[in-house]
Design a protein around this nucleic acid. Structure first.
Lengths: 353, 353
DNA sequence: ATTGGCACTCACGGGCATGGAGTGCTAAAC
DNA sequence: GTTTAGCACTCCATGCCCGTGAGTGCCAAT
């Protein structure tokens, strides 16, 4: 295991300077350049020695023998830890961001705008996914007959999330039957956790199989039709800002067409994104997580990082917000922006509770 | 105005052959190549003469003096007209496509899958937008109190489209009030066109301003809160397959990073896409429209074409389906695929009526 | 009308020299 | 012991040259 941080003060200073200039320029940085830019009047030779040490401890790489050095993943990890928590968003940015969420009513809408805003304030792709957590509770359901064997089911959860679905059922239902079924569910199960509710209904269906009454049979059919599927992975995935991947000068020029294509493809695979985010973002963590070294699990994302955080409303996880961007990015700014939006998320949607 | 089609039979044959090979190879095609590939034993010199004529009448271009010829927009238009209506989708493709729409319940879901399927079967980007046409009719509404001053409004239209919205209202409503308002609307306005309904309600609100009764006042507030906004541009835009823009070998290599970036940006501007589609796809037209020369209105889409069709359910336009792809594409296949999906759209969603 | 022949034009790719940036090492200076 | 200057060496990027190949346009012959 490589050491988590370089030992000496001098080493740390120089490493930070290298990363700063590399992020700014994108060119491998050499000792001469550094000696000129840096105020402490160290000669190129001295810096060379330090750089050599840093390379030995795994913080720097060189693309080829006679090129400058570039930071390794380890170096970025050190760098991010270094700057974490030191700054806040500028008032102008806060204003810009929070005004983007004016008039947002539900989670999906918020997430959609999130992906948009994140793509604007960062040099990466804004990603937001909704996870229908199994801890969501039922507020009420509503059924409406649309046509022969077609029923509209609306489920409102405790957190104010609304899901509607059109069900295709094996037999026709009258609106009266549907109302009765809805009333029964609402009176008996308001406030229940969705997964408990579902297993309870499954249990009752089983139990009363022999002495089927009409109501239970209706509910059984509605249930099998997927009426209560509000907690199924809702698959709401919002991705915006892919243009940044090609337009931003920050993304390495080594991103050739083939890899760019694979990245775009990956970003369009919603299931994949959900897995990716849930793999890296622990629901328990409160703070923004910066994942450097995405290529370990997603090879085509070499030189990309994930900056994300679980999105909570009143403590309950409703999804994730993240930026997927080039390692060469303004970490400071992006981290604070992601964090700020997560705070807004709670704040804005809490009013629903 | 350039002539719509070359005159001679020989000219037409050669033009078609040129376009075919250009679509296949992507290289400017020269007289020698053509003379070898084409069965009719014409010498390169003859072909050169014909090509020269075709260039004069505006069907061919040459990138530089000593290169082969490439088809102009006009040539593609001729080509598309030529092949229109001559072929059907292979049974395997039909099977693949129609199976992609298994279990689809509502318009948005269908459109989302459409964009996906189109991106798979074509070498371009699949686009599908929902247009809340003003001719939609009301089936019924349903209001539900979520919390203080927050109300869930669900609008079901005659075509079976469901829209839910969370309203933030100036005062609190009890569920009873909401039920009364919903009942009033449902009993009086079922089957009305949404825009007539809205102006009628606006009229009544105005008229009864003096002798406000309680019910009318509730409805006024719900209406102002946006309860009936089901026909507002629903902004549902689905875009998939942008990876094709970089991965497909069909897209011209002249698509440099800058332009690719602009295209991606354009494809993410939903409003822009809606305008683009509605500008080119006439709601009255029944058949697939092929628009060659997108660069006239959207400069960054040079060398791209739009293949689209309005999506109808029982004659009512619900949106548009389209492919935006490189001029070098399999027109035959894409056109039939788009057309087939439009037919499926009607078929699948008609069951809702 | 069609064809063969011929000179001319470009784009593309390989080979080669050049310049610049950077490293590593060693020996001297502080 | 740390820092620095000097020097040889490596490697990439750039620019240039030039040969090759594909293609055109034109003209004269069939």
């Amino acid at each position: 295991m490589v050491p988590l941080a370089p030992k000496g003060l001098r080493e740390r200073e120089i490493l930070t300077a290298i990363i700063d200039t590399y992020i700014a320029t994108g060119e491998p940085v050499g000792s001469r350049t550094l000696s000129r830019t840096n105020k402490n009047g160290l000669s190129p030779a001295t810096i060379r020695n330090v750089m050599s040490d840093l390379a030995d401890s795994g913080f720097l790489d060189q693309p080829h023998t006679s090129a400058g050095r570039i930071p390794t993943a380890e170096a970025y990890r050190y760098y991010v830890e270094q700057i974490t928590g030191t700054a806040r968003l500028s008032p102008a940015d806060e204003e810009m961001i929070s005004s983007s969420f004016q008039g947002v009513g539900d989670v999906d809408e918020f997430l959609e705008r999130t992906s948009h805003v994140l793509s604007l304030v960062s040099s990466g792709v804004g990603v937001a996914v909704a996870i229908g957590g199994s801890k969501t509770t039922l507020d009420h359901v509503y059924f409406s007959r649309l046509s022969m064997q077609k029923v509209l089911a609306v489920v409102v959860t405790g957190a104010g999330v609304v899901r509607d679905r059109v069900l295709r059922l094996p037999r026709d239902f009258s609106q009266d039957e549907l109302d009765t079924a809805a009333r029964f569910i609402n009176e008996n199960f308001r406030g229940w956790a969705m997964d408990e509710l579902k297993s309870e209904i499954a249990r009752r269906i089983d139990q009363e199989r022999s002495e089927y009454d009409c109501l239970m049979e209706s509910i059984a059919q509605l249930y099998r039709g997927g009426a209560l599927a509000a907690d199924e992975p809702s698959q709401a995935v919002f991705v915006e800002g892919v243009a940044n991947l090609v337009a931003s000068e920050r993304v390495g020029s080594d991103l050739d067409k083939a890899r760019l294509g694979e990245m775009l493809r990956t970003l369009e695979e919603k299931q994949r994104l959900i897995e990716l985010l849930s793999a890296y973002l622990d629901a328990r963590q409160e703070t923004v997580r910066v994942v450097i070294g995405l290529e370990d699990t997603v090879p085509q994302m070499r030189n990309f990082v994930l900056i994300g955080v679980p999105a909570r409303v009143a403590g309950e996880v409703m999804g994730s917000l993240a930026v997927i961007g080039p390692t060469r990015m303004d970490y400071q700014h992006t981290i604070t922006a992601v964090s700020y939006i997560a705070r807004l998320f709670d704040q804005v949607l809490n009013e629903n509770a």
